[in-house]
Computed example of a mutant assay.
Amino acid sequence: MIIMIAAAAENNALGKNNELVWHLPNDFKRFKSLTTGHHIIMGRKTFESFPKPLPNRVHVIITRQENYQPEGCIVVDSIEKAIAACPENDDSYVIGGGEIYNLALPFTDIIELTKVHHSFDADTFFPKINKSEWLLVESEENYKDEKHLYDYTYETYIRK
């Protein structure tokens, strides 16, 4: 299955200047738990925003740059080739950024969304979820605390 995983604000903001605009440690733990051991599909800018490749995951990077070949990664030039590079009988995760989410949406079976209950100034946005195409099947509210400055909700959507 193709699973899109993201954290987006109330205004669908994802980030600004290739960085997240919030810090939610529990969401990072959830991301790690869900994606570890799987293929993760991302754009080049998302990959380059990491200090190093994420451990225990196969990185599939979509880029138009020729001769771009980070060590140990699969590099392709389209979402179709990225999906084809992933095992058919396993979950693969689309992890961003905004352009990649838009390209991957038609191929996506499940959306794992962390909705951050705040609006942010951003330059990258998550696509709007069309409620006629997606069914919310799980929702878990989380509240701000000493480590989390914002309330947030884990939401799981499946394609209708």
Rank of each mutant, 00 (worst) to 15 (best):
M1S: 14
M4N: 04
I5V: 10
A6R: 09
A8Q: 08
A9D: 00
A9P: 01
G15T: 06
N18L: 09
N18T: 05
E19R: 14
L20Y: 07
V21R: 00
W22G: 01
W22E: 11
H23G: 08
L24R: 08
P25F: 15
D27E: 15
F28G: 06
F28M: 14
F28H: 10
K29Y: 10
K29M: 05
K29F: 03
R30A: 10
R30E: 12
R30S: 14
F31S: 06
K32N: 12
K32H: 10
L34F: 13
T35C: 05
T36Y: 13
G37V: 08
G37L: 11
H38N: 11
H39V: 03
I40R: 05
I41H: 01
M42S: 03
G43I: 04
R44P: 04
R44C: 08
F47E: 02
E48I: 01
S49D: 00
S49F: 03
S49K: 05
F50R: 10
K52T: 12
P53G: 01
P53N: 15
R57T: 08
H59G: 10
V60A: 15
I62Y: 05
T63S: 11
T63K: 04
T63C: 10
R64S: 15
E66P: 14
E66W: 11
N67E: 15
N67Y: 15
Q69E: 15
P70W: 02
P70E: 07
E71G: 12
E71Q: 14
G72R: 12
G72M: 13
I74G: 07
V76K: 09
S78W: 09
I79F: 15
I79W: 08
K81M: 12
A85F: 05
P87M: 06
P87Y: 10
E88C: 06
D90A: 14
D90K: 15
S92Q: 03
Y93Q: 04
V94D: 02
I95P: 00
I95G: 00
G96M: 04
G97W: 01
G97L: 01
N102T: 14
N102F: 09
L105S: 04
D109I: 09
D109F: 09
I110V: 13
L113Q: 06
L113W: 07
H117D: 02
F120L: 04
D121Y: 13
D121M: 03
A122Q: 07
D123F: 07
D123Q: 11
F126Q: 00
F126P: 02
P127F: 07
P127E: 07
K128V: 05
I129M: 07
N130F: 01
K131V: 02
S132T: 05
W134D: 02
L135G: 03
V137T: 15
V137A: 04
S139K: 14
E140D: 07
N142T: 04
K144T: 00
D145Q: 11
D145C: 06
K147T: 12
K147Q: 13
H148Y: 00
L149Q: 11
D151H: 01
Y152F: 12
Y152C: 01
Y152S: 07
T153F: 01
R159Q: 11
